[in-house]
Simulated scan of single mutants.
Amino acid sequence: MLENTLPQLEQLIEDIIEKNNQLKNQVAELEQQKTVLIDENETLQLEALEGEEKQKQTNDVLTNLLGKLQSA
């Protein structure tokens, strides 16, 4: 019985070690993807803020122009 159990145990340990290495690699890849997505998110947030600022400036210009037209 021990003759069969020991090789099975060794195989299971090797399988677990291999799976652990695969999971470590997967975690590393996901960390890299996370970093890229964080950078992209920050860029998109900055672009959105810039867009809002431009929209506000445009709105102010249009409001001024409308005021000038109404007073003329």
Rank of each mutant, 00 (worst) to 15 (best):
E40A: 06
T35H: 11
K68F: 00
E53M: 05
E31T: 10
L12W: 06
Q70E: 14
K56Q: 12
D60E: 15
E50G: 02
G67E: 08
N41F: 02
D15V: 01
N25M: 05
V27Y: 03
D60G: 09
G51I: 02
E52A: 03
T58P: 00
Q45P: 00
L23W: 09
V36T: 09
Q22M: 09
L62Q: 08
Q57S: 09
K24R: 14
L37I: 07
N20F: 05
A28T: 06
D15R: 10
E18W: 00
K34G: 02
Q8A: 09
L23V: 12
K19C: 11
D39M: 04
L65V: 15
T58S: 07
K54W: 01
L9A: 13
K19Q: 14
E42A: 05
D39W: 00
E42S: 06
V27S: 05
I13K: 15
K19A: 15
M1L: 12
I38D: 14
L30C: 04
Q70C: 01
V27Q: 06
E14S: 10
Q8C: 05
V36R: 13
T63H: 06
E18D: 10
Q33E: 14
D15T: 05
K34N: 11
I13W: 08
E50Q: 13
K19I: 11
E31H: 12
K54H: 03
P7S: 03
L66S: 15
Q32T: 04
D39I: 04
L62S: 05
I16T: 10
K19T: 14
L65D: 01
T43W: 07
